[in-house]
């Protein structure tokens, strides 16, 4: 028995050492790739964010560094989420052009629908796009631009045009089309967009305020 113990211990140490060696090799491989790809991934994320923002507000409409001119807001009631949301502020020279921010429509057919809303300085919607949703493919996904133009009808609308009573799907007596087989999805989107407009009206002054010198 006492003769076996040192041998067993040596074998265990050898196994553990080998395992540790492989862990180190694997770790180096992953760390190396991470270092090589880090900048490119960041750049890709920014490019992807920029192209999403530009869908709502075309690049020629502003000339500031939109991705960096941001402020954060938290407004669970009107933005549909407890999360802190980033507001992107578009300016042309010193002139405020629009603010773009994500909102959540929490009452979609299957969970949250994340939208990007752009509101111009005069209170008109620059546009709305879907960032992320889990609605039924073929029915609720008509809110995506690749499926239909439905979401584009928001451009140019504002809080009082159409009047509050008409910010509903036609089925509920409003002005917006529902699409075949899906009423819950458009209803949720319309409600969230209108709330975003209310949020804008209440916070217009602070949203366009110049970046404070001392945060």
């Amino acid at each position: 028995m006492s003769g076996h113990a040192p041998k067993l211990r040596r074998q265990m140490a050898l196994s553990a050492g080998l395992l540790a060696l492989f862990a180190v090799v694997g770790g180096v491989l992953v760390a190396g790739t991470e270092t090589l790809t880090r900048d490119r991934i960041l750049e890709q994320q920014r490019a992807s964010l920029r192209s999403t923002l530009n869908e709502v507000l075309p690049a020629h409409r502003y000339n500031n560094a939109l991705l960096d001119d941001t402020m954060t807001v938290q407004e669970p009631e009107l933005l549909g989420t407890d999360e802190t949301m980033t507001v992107y502020r578009a300016r042309q020279g010193t002139q405020s052009v629009a603010v773009l921010f994500p909102v959540v429509a929490p009452d979609g057919y299957s969970g949250d629908i994340r939208l990007l809303v752009g509101i111009q300085a005069n209170g008109e919607l620059a546009g709305v796009r879907v960032l992320n949703h889990r609605e039924t493919p073929g029915l609720g996904d008509a809110i995506e631009t690749r499926r239909s133009d439905w979401i584009k009808q928001f451009a140019g609308l504002s809080l009082n045009a159409p009047p509050a009573s008409a910010w509903k799907v036609r089925k509920d007596g409003g002005e917006f089309d529902q699409f075949a087989g899906a009423t819950i999805t458009p209803r949720a989107v319309i409600k969230a967009v209108r709330k975003a407009l209310v949020f804008f009206e209440q916070n217009q002054a602070t949203l366009f305020a110049d970046t404070p010198a001392t945060p």
Partner: peptide, 14 residues
Amino acid sequence: AAFVTTVELAMNAW
């Protein structure tokens, strides 16, 4: 796991 993470990072980048 090491190879999958490498591929994942590469796909994220390219």
